[in-house]
């Protein structure tokens, strides 16, 4: 009898690794029956993980830390991150109207490095303020998300005060494009394919990507409930090995066509395969070595969360707590066996 492992995921291109592990036999080869359950909201994924309806989840890296630390709106849930996942790029998409205004007011800045283009936005904001217009609104996918920190960082670098100059709200990824087209928001930072979709529909333009703003930053992780990891050490190593092999499969450009078609299925991302394929070409590498959870990443997240005002002195994680959460041991064990075999 194979071990059943239930994982939750969100409809994003970077759910690729668990999906491939389940669909291409990598999990089965490790004696694991990997059952995937989709959620359209991060809050739903958080709750299902917190109360054991799933054993683990494809999760925003900062959300894993926030849950473990007990600041994610629910009581603390001990988690283990044995492997990181990442394929889909985050990007900042602005409405076509706003983008055009920025190009009109500062063509040189808009032709320059994407990381600095918020300076053009700052000029638009000043012009709006002079005319007494209401502030522009931007959305990210969740308060505890790299998207949130990336948007804040991009805006701040343009000299924009993120607390007073703009409104920043939360919209679930599948709702982003309609929120932009309805004029409810003027721009957002989200993962793919939700930027490519806005561009394809002519609703928005990508102004900067994660690679422009925070190259090499961690994005999604596999977060497992600690009570599912500790008593099942071998199974966890096997699961991580399946994920690493799936990551290598995803990384091979020869598989991108098949991967895009797989993710396009309604039960996964449910968007056109061509759209997903285009984002895979641009996606960051997800080779086996990139899946190793590095403590430096966790420390970086702590710094981001502090800057965003999400951590207070009494909720600050200590080194032991971070090490319990961010655990490369399973990856190293899996890789060791992997290399030996």
């Amino acid at each position: 009898m194979p071990d059943i492992v239930k994982l939750g995921f969100a409809p994003l291109v970077d759910c690729a690794i668990p999906v491939v592990a389940a669909e291409r036999g990598f999990a089965a080869a490790e004696g694991i029956d990997l059952v995937l359950e989709r959620s359209n909201s991060w809050a739903a994924l958080r709750d299902k993980l917190a109360f054991g309806l799933v054993d683990g989840a494809h999760l925003l890296a900062p959300l894993a830390l926030a849950m473990h630390q007990g600041i994610a709106g629910i009581p603390a849930v001990p988690l283990v991150v044995p492997v990181t996942l990442g394929l889909g790029n985050n990007a900042i998409t602005l409405s076509a109207t706003l983008h055009a205004r920025m190009v009109a007011v500062a063509p040189a800045i808009m032709a320059g490095p994407p990381a600095k283009r918020a300076r053009a936005l700052q000029l638009v904001i000043e012009a709006d303020r002079a005319r007494g217009q209401v502030p522009l609104s931007f959305a990210t996918v969740f308060p505890f998300s790299c998207h949130h920190y990336e948007l804040l960082s991009w805006l701040s670098d343009g000299g924009i005060d993120t607390r007073t100059d703009v409104n920043i709200g939360i919209v679930a990824p599948p709702r982003m494009v309609e929120s932009l087209t309805s004029g409810w928001i003027d721009g957002y930072c989200a993962g793919e394919p939700w930027n490519a979709l806005a561009v394809a529909r002519g609703a928005g333009l990508v102004v900067a990507t994660k690679a422009d703003i925070r190259p090499g930053g961690v994005e999604k992780v596999l977060a497992l409930r600690a009570d599912q990891v500790t008593p099942h050490r071998d199974r966890t190593v096997a699961l991580v090995r399946a994920m690493v092999r799936a990551a290598n499969w995803c990384h091979d450009p020869a598989n991108h066509g098949a991967l895009a078609r797989l993710l396009a299925e309604p039960c996964y991302v449910g968007q056109p395969a061509e759209l997903i394929a285009a984002t895979l070409v641009k996606a960051e590498a997800a080779k086996a070595e990139d899946c190793r959870p590095d403590l430096v990443q966790a420390q970086q997240l702590v710094a981001d969360m502090m800057r965003a005002g999400q951590l207070a002195p009494d909720t600050m994680p200590d080194a032991n707590m971070l090490a319990a959460l961010w655990t490369p041991a399973y990856h190293d064990l899996a890789q060791g066996t992997f290399n030996a075999g």
Binding site: S39, N40, S41, W42, A43, A44, D47, K48, G73, V141, F142, P143, G169, I170, V171, A172, P174, R175
Partner: peptide, 15 residues
Amino acid sequence: DLENPDRDTLEQMFQ
């Protein structure tokens, strides 16, 4: 409903 995408928006608004 638990899976409602609006929950993410609501939670932050409440805060």
